[in-house]
């Protein structure tokens, strides 16, 4: 018989004991070790995952922050640039304005100076001209000239119109003072008598005549009494001439000013172009 039942039973028992022993000493410890290791690995992986996700989160956060920061910086930069541009434009404008003002004031002062100079020049010239004329006439004035002057004066007296004549007559007659005749030079006696005669003729009555010599009268003769005065002198001519010269000068200055005022915008435009 190939089967020995005692051995079979013994082997069954042996096998069961072996099962128990191996469970106790082999499978249990080995599986526990594997489980522990796997748990450790899983823990490590989970830890790494957690760290990774945390890092990812932080990276995202930082990226977001960076983005915001960049945007803010850009905005600030733009703002600063804008402000700088505005400031630049403003400063330029101000500088241009100041330059313009300075230029205008400079031009104005230059023009004023020029005008002053012109005026001064013309005044000097006029004065010189008149002084020369006055001096020449004074130098030239002599007896013959005085004679001729007296003639013209007397002629003027005779040629007075009726109203003037009446006024003069009444003035001369009513005045208690003697008639005052002033001349620049001492006249010859014939002249004096001729004047006295003519006055008598005009007034139709005797009137005491007093002769005075006043060198300021440039080659002239003057009768005055009771506020009335009849005179003729070269100084009058000279005065009227000076007046006309002055008015002419004033006129020319005005025209010059107007011309410059018209020219001014053009030059300003040109200067602004150069400035830009």
């Amino acid at each position: 018989m190939l089967i020995d039942w005692f051995t079979v039973i013994a082997q069954v028992i042996n096998f069961l004991i072996l099962v128990w022993l191996l469970k106790r000493f082999l499978y249990g410890p080995i599986l526990n070790a594997i489980d522990a290791r796997e748990k450790r690995i899983a823990d490590k992986i989970a830890d790494a995952e957690a760290k990774k996700s945390e890092a990812q989160k932080e990276r995202d956060e930082y990226q977001q922050k960076n983005k915001v920061f960049d945007q803010q910086r850009k905005e600030h930069m733009n703002q600063v640039m804008e402000t700088a541009k505005t400031e630049h434009a403003q400063l330029l404008d101000t500088a241009r304005q100041e330059t313009e003002n300075l230029r205008t004031s400079l031009q104005l002062s230059l023009r004023n100076e020029m005008l002053d100079l012109n005026e001064e020049l013309s005044r000097r010239a006029r004065e010189e001209v008149f002084s020369i004329a006055r001096k020449t006439l004074s130098d030239l004035a002599g007896a013959s000239l005085e004679e001729r002057m007296t003639d013209i004066f007397l002629e003027r007296l005779r040629e007075l119109n009726d109203v003037q004549m009446t006024e003069m007559k009444s003035a001369l007659i009513t005045s208690p003072d003697p008639l005052l005749v002033r001349t620049a030079f001492k006249l010859p006696t014939a002249q004096y008598s001729a004047i006295e005669t003519t006055i008598k003729e005009i007034l139709g009555q005797d009137k005491q005549v007093e002769f005075n010599i006043v060198p300021d009268l440039v080659s002239g003769i003057e009768i005055s009494s009771n506020g009335q005065k009849i005179a003729w002198s070269i100084a009058e001519y000279l005065d009227s001439m000076a007046m006309s010269v002055n008015s002419m000068l004033k006129k020319s200055t005005l025209i010059q000013n107007e011309n410059e005022a018209l020219d001014h915008p053009k030059t300003e435009q040109g200067s602004s172009k150069n400035g830009a």
């Binding site: 022993l21 191996l22 000493f25 082999l26 410890p29 526990n32 290791r37």
Partner: peptide, 18 residues
């Protein structure tokens, strides 16, 4: 049985979980 059990015991005596 002895070989199996003793071998297991010897090896599993100092198991590493590392």
């Amino acid at each position: 049985m002895l070989v199996l059990v003793l071998g297991s015991k010897l090896i599993t005596r100092k198991l590493s979980t590392d």
